[in-house]
């Protein structure tokens, strides 16, 4: 080890004194390969194997972090004009840019479907239910409350970060937990509504023979809200992670970047909903 370090130091710029390997990216890729090919071929065992290995891979990745193995590239670098923003935060912003484009494609597809059919009621043709009409299948008051819940969770997220920056760990833990609870509430209400719509209103992602006049409304509704819900669920998992670590004594005045990064993602998911809610629930033609 001694010899290795001195060797690297003598190599100057090309030195890799802090170089570590990690098997976990490979494990995650194997998990992805198995899970996704299971998805394509409808092989449940492959999907389950993929999920199992995914858990192992993520666990191993985080375990490596928790042991203090650092992959951070050290050194003095020219950072202008991005000196005020950390690498991870910049990476998160770039990831969010890509997410914006993902949802743009998705929402664009939904709007295209909407413009292809007239508003309900329409004789002899599939139509798009109007929010103002009494037989509109979606539950507007319930989802309005749910929107309020999600926006409130953004507020508690900001407060959690603020508390961490002030060094008030008790408040930070409380607000992190509140955010987690509000997020879970949002998804629960969404699951409840899905259940009602699917079985009660016969609103399905496909065109069904019971209510064929709904046409592609269900396609657009489930795809857009479903992908949003999946993103919220991902955020809830991240919040769970933050909560566990916070309860075990992590984060505080000098260590709050993880909260900020998850917060950025969480606000993004919130903003997507602020677009989706009017598009699917409120705006008539």
């Amino acid at each position: 080890m001694e010899e290795h370090a001195s060797h690297a130091a003598s190599a100057g710029d090309a030195g890799h004194a802090e170089h570590h390997g990690s098997i976990w990216p490979f494990v995650l890729a194997v998990a992805g390969g198995l899970g996704f090919s299971g998805l394509a071929t409808h092989e449940i065992p492959l999907i389950l194997a993929g999920i199992a290995i995914l858990v192992v891979g993520v666990g191993g990745w985080l375990w490596q972090d928790s042991r203090g193995v650092s992959f951070t590239v050290k050194g003095n670098y020219e950072e202008r004009p991005f000196a005020g923003i950390s690498r991870r935060k910049l990476g998160m912003w770039i990831f969010l840019v890509s997410e914006i484009f993902f949802f743009t494609g998705l929402i664009g597809a939904g709007l295209t479907l909407r413009l292809r059919v007239p508003s309900c009621p329409s004789v002899g043709q599939a139509c798009w239910p109007e929010p103002a009409s009494p037989d509109f299948p979606l539950n507007i008051p319930l989802t309005a409350i749910n929107t309020f819940v999600l926006i409130t969770s953004s507020l508690t997220m900001v407060e959690a970060l603020h508390a961490a920056q002030k060094g008030n760990r008790a408040q930070m833990k409380a607000f992190l937990f509140a955010t987690f609870l509000l997020g879970a509430t949002f998804v629960s209400i969404q699951v409840y509504e899905y259940n009602k719509l699917f079985f009660g209103e016969n609103l399905t992602p496909w065109v069904n023979s019971v209510r064929p006049e709904l046409g592609t409304f269900g396609t657009a509704f489930y795809a857009q809200t479903g992908f949003h819900g999946a993103h919220v669920t991902g955020g809830i998992l991240a919040l769970l992670f933050l909560n566990v670590k916070a309860w075990r004594g992590k984060y505080g005045k000098d260590d709050h970047e993880a909260i900020e990064l998850v917060g950025l993602y969480w606000h993004f998911v919130d903003v997507v909903w602020i677009f989706l809610f009017p598009i699917m629930y409120l705006i008539g033609r």
């Binding site: 409808h42 597809a109 295209t112 479907l113 292809r116 059919v117 002899g124 043709q125 599939a126 992602p205 496909w206 065109v207 064929p212 006049e213 046409g215 592609t216 396609t219 489930y222 795809a223």
Partner: peptide
């Protein structure tokens, strides 16, 4: 992928998403 495996109708003009009520293609 959803069109193929769930039965959504984003791009589909036939079969399950067919011309509904005999007029208009829902998918594009």
């Amino acid at each position: 992928f959803l069109d193929r495996n769930i039965g959504t109708c984003f791009f589909v003009t036939t079969a399950g998403c067919g011309p509904i009520f005999g007029a208009g293609d829902p998918g594009d």
